[in-house]
């Protein structure tokens, strides 16, 4: 499975912010870390804001904060703001769908979609942060380390 870039950015942004609930982090910092344009990320942040997952803090030192519940917000809550996940309706109207072969193929693809949905629906932001810590690689926990990591 491959996520659209907006979904990936949204997940990264939420993880960055949720990892540092006591900080406001600018879109520029996050965009810089993941090598994307601030303009592109700003649109993602706007969508996350409308969904109540982040809020912006204005003024000097302002930025974004995570405003969701890390133990309740799952990957699918974030991704579905930007794309449909394993959506059967998405496949309607495809050539041959009314044939027996089309039905058999749909049954198999539905199996995969079920697992995708179950996985994305059960992984919370909190669980992902723990996984990042366990992996011990450069993740959200390294944001802000040092005085001015982003210019």
């Amino acid at each position: 499975m491959k996520l659209q870039i907006a979904s990936r950015l949204a997940v990264f942004a939420v993880l960055e912010l949720a990892a540092h609930p006591d900080r406001q982090i600018s879109a520029a910092e996050i965009a810089d870390k993941y090598g994307v344009s601030t303009h592109h990320l700003a649109k993602v942040m706007h969508t996350l804001g409308r969904a109540g997952l982040v809020r912006s803090v204005r003024g000097a030192g302002g930025g974004y904060q995570f405003s969701g519940n890390a133990k309740r917000t799952t990957l699918i809550d974030i991704i579905q703001l930007f794309e449909r996940v394993g959506d059967v309706e998405n496949a309607s109207g495809e050539p041959g769908e009314d044939t027996s072969a089309g039905g058999a193929l749909r049954q198999i693809l539905d199996e995969i979609d079920d697992i995708t949905r179950a996985t994305l629906s059960s992984v919370t932001v909190s669980t992902l942060l723990k996984l990042i810590d366990r992996r011990g690689s450069a993740g959200p926990s390294d944001v802000g380390v040092g005085a001015t990591p982003y210019s």
């Binding site: 799952t74 179950a118 629906s121 059960s122 669980t127």
Partner: peptide
């Protein structure tokens, strides 16, 4: 069960993976 997202969330929060 695939449909039991809450139970799956619990086990995943405890570090269990597929």
């Amino acid at each position: 069960s695939h449909g039991n997202h809450l139970l799956m969330s619990f086990f995943r929060s405890q570090g269990m993976m597929a």
